[in-house]
Design a binder for these strands. Structure first.
Length: 649
RNA sequence: GCUGACGUAGCUCAAUUGGCAGAGCAGCUGACUUGUAAUCAGCAGGCUACCGGUUCGAGUCCGGUCGUCAGCUCCA
């Protein structure tokens, strides 16, 4: 038998017979590795475990505990799911079935609509396919034959996909009578899947385009073993308990009302308090950093939006008032603050010495979101944002951009969310002409400028094409809600277009008029969304400085009411948000109420405390932390509030 | 806007094939005066989201509207 040499990632070399499979090599290295192997990488190319080595090569074994390995494993799960659906329903056409961060999905086109109750049935069929342990085989067919095969199977979506591939040979994977277009690699047989679960069904447009047919998407996940799957499901359930949309209502932070309308949350006193604290903090901080405050109208004539380009690129998202056909004046509620602050800038002639001009406004905006898009406090039709615009000379652009980022980072650190966010560089999509101002050269130039700044800042960021504002590229700060859905919380935008449209100028040293740059930015983004994020981050247990109620004084009986009032009065005079629970209940009950409300501190006062002029302090997390003089408690909580301590103990 | 699920007391949820709308918590009243996560008793609470239809009879079946949830599209 002819031999060949296999070089492993650690540099060592092994000798094997020609035709040895990747899996055999893995077992030869170690039985544990053989068991954990899901695929291999031969000379950097991913291959199946049953791939036969034909020549000397570099080999890496991909194991289930790597991200790559889990991905391959889940991809096989998605094939098994599609196979099961094909067995159960008639006329199923396959679209795409990729893996995602926490599992996989498959988009399918079928007449019948699959309801969530039917997932169990599909799971059962998957189990059957699993126990049949069908071998999964890779096949390569010439384009023509692959197209012919898919045509015979009436897989119109696959045909579309193959037609876009440039490869001579098309790779397919087959298990039993199920065959799918796929790059692979895959597990060697359907029996290798250990633990999986289908999670939900939803509609999804073919190729993500709303003009295309809506397909049925089934979401599922798979894990190397049952224990890990159960752990994941448990975590998922736990995370959903933090859902701001449930918790925020339960904790009486906000409400909605059918008669008021969708996407129009009402902040109740406690929620409004948190937002007020945030706003004051942001406004004070902006002032310290050289921002000037404006207050501008919530609506304007159509003409203003025609100048800004909103009328052309953003009209569908605006609330327009007044019917032109009836000869009425046409106004629109503002979706952004920029045009208004630009008007203020333009009301004067500016010297280069005036720049940078930094305008800030706690600004309420209106956007006519489509009906299915509203979500709790995260996606609403009216929101208030820590808006700001910096008008700068080209030379100042980078420094000011850095200054904005510094402010933003300070905000995120203070809110304790620095570790929960990531940066996204959002660029335009040249193909979507209607979405963006048509100025390709300016787009490329400003994106280049932004990229250079980001790279010089050594910022770790992802890139998203088609996520820019209509007037310029953005640096978005993203977070994930409890459902794993990504949203923008803060944004910094570079604008080359609106200074032009508004003919904004400054007079430079050489006495010529020049065009400034504009940076649009938010400090914490919109307060509603920020509140939602904080609810989920802290599971309702806000840091003391943000807590709508910071202290609850709990007298044990009526005998201590006077002392309780005195205690509360002293704290209140220090600006601490304190209440007394003088309900006719037992101590345990009152503590429970305060615990549920996540009030940071409970001060229990009985006869002992009255005698000693002390309070017994109960921390919402650590429980009873002992008796202390009121003065001591006062300075302790004041320090915590002043330092805006946000860490979870 | 699209796909699917859903809407019963303030909240969480029951109500058999269409046959008298019910419980716990919260609320109110009273008793209890309490030492670190739920004291007991009584009372009250409803045009079953809204509008229309089928039926002797609709919370339940059908149609529409509004709203909610998950996803898609869109987005701060």
């Amino acid at each position: 038998m002819e031999k060949l040499s296999v070089r492993l990632p650690d540099g060592s070399e092994m000798e094997h017979d020609r035709g040895t499979t990747v899996e055999e090599v893995a077992y030869d290295i170690g039985s544990r590795l053989g068991k954990d192997a899901v695929a291999g990488k031969v000379d950097g190319r991913e291959v199946d475990l049953n791939y036969e080595l034909e020549e000397d090569s570099d080999l890496e074994i991909i194991t289930i505990d790597s991200e790559e390995g889990l991905d391959i494993y889940r991809h096989t799960a998605s094939h098994i799911m599609a196979h099961a659906v094909k067995r159960i329903y008639d006329d199923v056409k396959l679209a795409i079935g990729p893996t995602i961060e926490e599992g996989f999905y498959y988009d399918l086109d079928l007449q019948e609509s699959i309801s969530e109750d039917e997932l169990e049935k599909i799971e059962k069929e998957m189990e059957k396919i699993n126990s049949e342990d069908l071998p999964i085989k890779r096949k390569e067919l010439p384009r023509k034959e692959a197209l012919k095969l898919m045509d015979e199977k009436n897989e119109t979506y696959k045909i579309e996909l193959i037609e876009e591939l440039e490869d001579e040979n098309i790779s397919l994977y087959q298990q039993g009578d199920f065959i799918d277009l796929c790059q692979g690699p895959h597990l060697p047989s359907t029996g290798r899947l250990e633990a999986f679960k289908l999670l939900s069904v939803a509609g999804a447009y073919w190729r993500g385009d709303e003009n295309n047919k809506m397909l049925q998407r089934i979401y599922g996940t798979a894990f190397p073993d049952q224990k890990q799957l159960e752990e994941y499901l448990k975590q998922r359930k736990e995370a959903q308990k933090r859902d701001h949309n449930k918790l925020g209502r339960k904790m009486d932070l906000f409400m909605t009302d059918q008669e008021v309308g969708a996407g129009l949350p009402l902040l109740t006193p406690k929620g409004a308090k948190v937002v007020q604290i945030l706003q004051r903090f942001v406004e004070d901080e902006e002032e310290k950093r050289g921002y000037e405050r404006t207050m501008t109208p919530l609506m304007a004539r159509r003409d203003l939006y025609e100048t800004s380009g909103h009328w052309e690129h953003y009209k569908d998202d605006m609330f327009v008032i007044g019917d032109e056909e009836k000869g009425e004046e046409v106004l629109a509620l503002r979706p952004m603050t920029c045009p208004f602050q630009f008007k203020i800038y333009n009301s004067k002639i500016h010297s280069y010495r005036d720049l940078p001009v930094r305008f800030a406004e706690t600004s309420t905006l209106f956007r006519n979101e489509a009906s299915g898009e509203m979500h709790g406090l995260i996606r609403v039709r009216q929101f208030t944002i820590s808006e700001g615009h910096l008008i700068v000379t080209p030379e100042q652009l980078e420094d000011e951009f850095r200054g904005v980022l510094k402010l933003i980072n300070y905000m995120m650190e203070t809110l304790g969310i620095k570790k929960d966010i990531w940066y996204r560089f959002s660029r335009w999509n040249p193909d979507k002409k209607e979405k963006y101002i048509d100025a390709p050269a300016a787009w490329r130039d400003s994106q280049e400028k932004m990229k250079n700044i980001l790279d010089r800042l050594d910022l770790d960021y992802t890139v998203a094409d088609g996520e820019a504002a209509f007037y310029g590229p953005k640096l978005d700060i993203q977070f994930k809600n409890v459902h794993g859905k990504e949203d923008t919380i803060i944004t910094v935008q570079m604008d080359f277009a609106l200074p032009e449209r508004f003919d904004m100028t400054y007079v430079d040293e050489d006495n010529t008029e020049k065009r400034p740059y504009v940076i649009h930015r938010t400090s914490v983004g919109c307060y509603e969304r920020t509140l939602a994020m904080l609810i989920e981050k802290y599971a309702g247990a806000f840091p003391t400085w943000l807590a709508p109620r910071q202290v609850m004084v709990i007298p044990i009986s009526e005998a201590q009411y006077d002392y309780a009032r005195k205690t509360a009065g002293i704290l209140k005079s220090e600006g601490i948000r304190v209440d007394i629970d003088d309900s006719d209940e037992k101590l345990g009950y009152k503590i429970r109420q305060a615990q549920i409300e996540q009030i940071p501190y409970m001060l229990i006062v009985g006869d002992n405390e009255v005698q000693a002029e002390t309070v017994s302090v109960r921390d919402r997390r650590d429980g009873d932390i002992g008796e202390m003089p009121l003065e001591d408690f006062k300075s302790m909580i004041k320090e915590e509030i002043d330092k805006k301590v946000s860490e979870i103990n």
